[in-house]
């Protein structure tokens, strides 16, 4: 494993598999236990450095670190020196002086974790940077797929929605490809980046054509504001062409699953009855996020001298 987890490309197939296997072992070791705590990272300090509000991701990382007995410091940009104009570099040097073993960073600027990694000695885990990547989300998604379908190799994953602005999509395309899955992206052409043709994924515009050949459908959050920038004409048209409703869900193969990284826009990209169906893995994804992040923290920080 590399020292940092900044993007899906930091994991080769062996590394990615090791993370998923480790998460599975941790899940199994903790299953049914009253004390869901391990002493592994006793004495290590993990800083959650969140420049963007993301309660669910922060809590997931916090729980993961605490279950491994690390000391956790939540450093939110709001109300801290950061909001008073302290630069990312100064913040990095502060964390360094405090002896942070790991820094979990969420930032609205693509590449901010890469910058941070060049300034600190500890391991940097990217918890989402701008429209770039969110590698632990991809890991938990891969874990969830493997848990439900028993494999990743050859699994047909269709990712639907605002690929252009989605760090989840970028990380998933990279990681799932590394793990042998076949990824198809479906979106209105306005929400696909120029250059998507160089990605290891097929691209289509017609959701109905792809669904019968999908083992996994991953719906991305679409912000209704996008229509103000003419990415699509209206929420209604988007929903009609790219939303997953019960009719479309019925076109999926029998054991296909429906995923969503959350938070969902019910009625926009996903209908309530789909989100709450047995195919939906949305709640599992949240639970799997904790064990996957425990695995990442263990593998990155456990051996650091």
């Amino acid at each position: 494993m590399k020292r940092h987890l900044l993007e899906a490309a930091d994991l080769d197939r062996d590394d990615a598999t090791l993370v998923l296997d480790t998460a599975a072992q941790i899940d199994q070791a903790l299953a049914g236990r009253e004390v869901k705590k391990l002493p592994t990272l006793r004495g290590r300090t993990v800083v959650n450095l969140f420049y963007e509000d993301s309660t669910r991701t922060r809590i997931s990382f916090e729980l993961a670190a605490k279950r491994l007995s690390a000391d956790v410091i939540n450093f939110s940009a709001k109300g801290s020196s950061v909001s008073k104009g302290e630069s990312l570099k100064d913040t990095a040097l502060t964390l360094e002086a405090m002896g942070a073993d790991g820094v979990v960073v969420r930032h609205s600027a693509s590449g901010a974790p890469h910058r941070l990694a060049s300034w600190v000695k500890g391991s940097v885990v990217n918890a989402g940077d701008g429209t770039h990547e969110h590698p632990t989300q991809a890991l938990l998604d891969a874990y969830t797929i493997r848990q439900r379908l028993g494999r990743l190799d050859g699994v047909r994953v269709t990712i639907v929605g605002d690929v252009l602005h989605s760090r989840v999509a970028r990380s998933n395309v990279g990681l799932l490809h590394t793990l042998g899955a076949e990824v198809t992206l479906v979106a209105p052409p306005t929400l696909l980046p120029v250059g998507v043709g160089s990605w290891p994924a097929d691209v289509g515009y017609d959701l109905d054509a792809v669904l019968p050949k999908s083992d996994v459908v991953m719906m991305l959050r679409v912000q209704a504001e996008r229509m103000n920038a003419s990415f699509f004409p209206s929420a209604r048209e988007y929903s009609r062409r790219y939303g997953l409703d019960a009719r479309r869900m019925a076109a999926l193969p029998d054991d296909a699953i429906v995923m969503h990284p959350g938070p969902m826009n019910r009625g926009m990209e996903i209908a309530a009855e789909v989100a709450d169906s047995v195919r939906s893995t949305i709640v599992e994804q949240v639970a799997n996020g904790v064990s996957t992040r425990m695995a990442v923290l263990y593998l990155l920080l456990g051996g650091n001298a």
Binding site: A8, A9, D12, R13, D14, T17, L18, D153, V173, G174, H177, T178, L179, G180, E182, V183, S198, W199, P200, A201, D202
Partner: peptide
């Protein structure tokens, strides 16, 4: 047909090396 992902690399089946 998926293309190579720059920096990533195609799936390999090398067993995990310790």
């Amino acid at each position: 047909m998926p293309r190579a992902w720059p920096g990533g690399g195609p799936p390999r089946s090398v067993p995990y090396r310790r």
